[in-house]
Every structure is written in C-alpha cells, then in structure tokens.
Amino acid sequence: MKNNTIIFVGLDTHKEFTEVAYCEDQRGSEVKHLGRVSSAKVSLTKMARQFESKYPQATLHFVYEAGPCGYWIYRLLTSLGHCCYVVAPSLIPKKPGQRVKTDKRDAQDLARLVRNGDLDPIYVPEPADEAIRDLSRARERAMHDLNNARFQLKALLLRNHINYSGKSNWSLKHLRWLTEIILPHPSQQFVLQEMIQTISERNARLERLDNELAHHVKQWRYYPVVKAIQALRGVRLLTATGVIVELGDLTRFDSPRKLMSYIGTTPSEHSSGGKRHLGAITKCGNGRARRLLVEAAHSYRYPAKISKELQLRQEGLPKEVIDQAWQAQQRLCRRYQRLIHKGKHRSVVVTAIARELIAYIRSISKEVTLPRIDPKTRISRVPA
C-alpha cells in the first residue's frame, strides 16, 4: 500500500447497529463490506481501531447520514483523530431506476460517493451550541402547545355560543372571566376547568423556559452576535437566538447569496433553450430559521424610525453595527413599499425582505469577535 492512502468508510447508522463498508481512494476500486457492528460507543471505537491496525499508514475518512441519532458518532470519531463527514439524506445522489434498498447497499453507496467527491458535508454544531438550540426549540414548542390549548378552549366556548365582550384575550381580566363561566352540563364544566388548568400550567412552563433561555444565552459564546444583530428592526432576543442557533457561524458562507440559498429564500429556476423561468422559493435548508426571518420582515412595512425599544437594544453596540442596522432599515422599508406599489403579493414582498435581512445579519456578525474553540478541550477561549 502507498503512503498517505485514504480509506473511505461508509456507515449506515441505526439505533441498535451500524452497517460498515469501505474502499480505497483509487477510483474504480472495489467497495468492500465489513459487516454489522453494534452502535455502542465501545463497538464503534473498536471498529476504528481495527481500521487503524489494518491500514497503519492510511488516513481514515468516515461518512454517515444525518438522522435522529444526532452527532455523537461524528464527535466520537473526530475525538479519535479521524475525519468524519455528516451528509444530508436529501442531498445523496440516487439512481432513478434503483429499486433495491438495503443497509449494506446504503453503506457501500456512502463510501463510493464520498470517494468520488459527490457528497457535501453539512455543518455540525458544537455540543454547547446544540444545547442552546435544544432550549430554544423547547421554548418554541411550549409556545405552540400553549396556543393549541387556547384554541381548544375558544372552540369549546364558540360551540356553546359564549363570547367575550372585552378587548384583549388572555389578559388577567379575560382569565377571571373564564373562571366565572357556567356551562349547562357538569361534564362540560369539568372539561372547561381542565382546559383552564392546562393553559395555566403551560403559561408557567413557557415562563420557565423564557427565564432559562435568557440566562443561558448570556453565557453562550455566540451571545455577542445575538446582541449585535438585535440592532436590526424586528430582530429581538428570541428571533436573534433562534436564527443563530439554527445557522451557527454565518461567516463560514463565502457570500450572502450562498447564505440566502442555504436557507431556501432564493427563487427556484427552470431554464432551457434560451427561456428563463423563475418559480417559488426553494424552501430548502432550515425551515425554522427561514420562518423567523419572515416573521421579522413584517416589521419593515412601516416607515423607517428608531423606536425607544430599538434604541435600548442598540445601547453599548459599536457604531459600525448601529450604522449598518440603520442602513438596513432604510433600504428594506423603501424596498417593501416599492414592491407593494408594484402590485406584488404581500407574502412575496415579505419573503424578499427576509432574503435581504439575512444578508445584513451576516454582515453584522462579521463585525463581532467570537471566542475560538480549542479542538482538544472543546472549551471557548477569547483570542488575545
């Protein structure tokens, strides 16, 4: 075997076991099937050691599909000093006529495709970044559960022709009004009390998650970026945190266009024979980040101004960041009104604003100095 040979190892991972196949870096070399190993950390470490002993002068490159099992396999193999790639299942090339799918073939295809350079790895977050992402997503799920409980209670009242005459729902006055309602049947009264109790519990759960998120985000290494991009209109703490936890380091994108394409806000295209046809946005990539940006883009329908709340968020930020935020607000507000006057649909206009908003977020994040991650200890260190 030649020195510096690369061995590509394809892993088809599952909860209980992992199918393993490998091949050398010579194009056209046979893809060999190693077999099935347990998905336990001890078994995967032993499998890597076997490759090290069999190919002592080779570099091992592992690849597997992203899935519900997370990134612990990536972190295990990289901690052993090997290269590891995680690929999105939707971006793996597949032959149109291929009708047979097995775990063995999947592992062999991964090894072959990564050797041929046909796979693009995805971004893998650091463990601390993933922890903040879990907390941010848990807060969003709590809000979703609370809204579902409110909808169910309002549906119950609507079926019984009970309407609230006040101005705002779910205020203290509205909650007191709910406790005074008497339904005609005891069974319905019991359901009403259970729904009120559920809403109270989910309100308390949401408050706990809000407090935890606000506390832990301030200790996060990306908090300087989260604080800086809140200088933009429509980007408060929850939106800023959600975008950064989903997209990670925005400076890894070479250009704003690549970032726009990554989150799926660029239009699809089907051009042929000199004819160009642009369709709806691709909606690829992270859907939660795209939705948060669209929600933030709605605030640009009003004229540009610095509100009291926005001024408070900008206090203590560098002048360069504040200037970029004001430039972004002026441009996006004008663009919103210009597209509306052209007769564009409001959803199309908001999507176009969101597409440009992420470019300004990337530009502001480049102005912030972040602590680096020590690859050996995985601890954040502030550069000297």
Rank of each mutant, 00 (worst) to 15 (best):
S90M: 10
S90K: 09
F62R: 06
L91Q: 11
P93H: 03
C69E: 12
V86P: 03
R75K: 12
L76P: 05
P68C: 13
H82S: 07
L76E: 07
P68F: 12
L76A: 09
Y64F: 15
T78S: 15
L80C: 14
A88L: 13
V86L: 08
S90L: 12
P68V: 14
L77Q: 04
C84T: 03
G81C: 10
P93A: 03
G67S: 15
C84M: 05
V63M: 03
H82W: 09
H82Y: 13
G70S: 13
S79Y: 07
A88M: 10
K95R: 14
C69L: 15
L76N: 07
Y64G: 00
C84K: 02
I73Q: 05
V86Q: 05
T78Q: 08
C84S: 04
V86N: 04
A88Y: 04
E65R: 12
F62D: 04
S79Q: 14
L77E: 05
R75V: 02
G81D: 06
A88H: 11
Y74L: 05
H82F: 14
P89M: 04
A66C: 13
Y71R: 11
H82V: 06
I73M: 09
W72A: 12
L80S: 09
Y71E: 13
G67P: 09
V87S: 00
R75S: 11
Y85Q: 07
S79I: 07
L80F: 12
G81K: 12
W72M: 06
K94M: 10
Y85S: 07
V63K: 01
P68H: 09
V87N: 00
Y64R: 02
Y71T: 13
K94Q: 15
L77S: 02
W72T: 11
V86H: 03
G81S: 09
W72N: 13
A66L: 08
V63Q: 02
C83H: 14
L76D: 05
A66R: 05
Y64P: 01
S79M: 10
I92A: 01
Y74I: 01
A88Q: 11
S90E: 09
P93Q: 02
S79V: 06
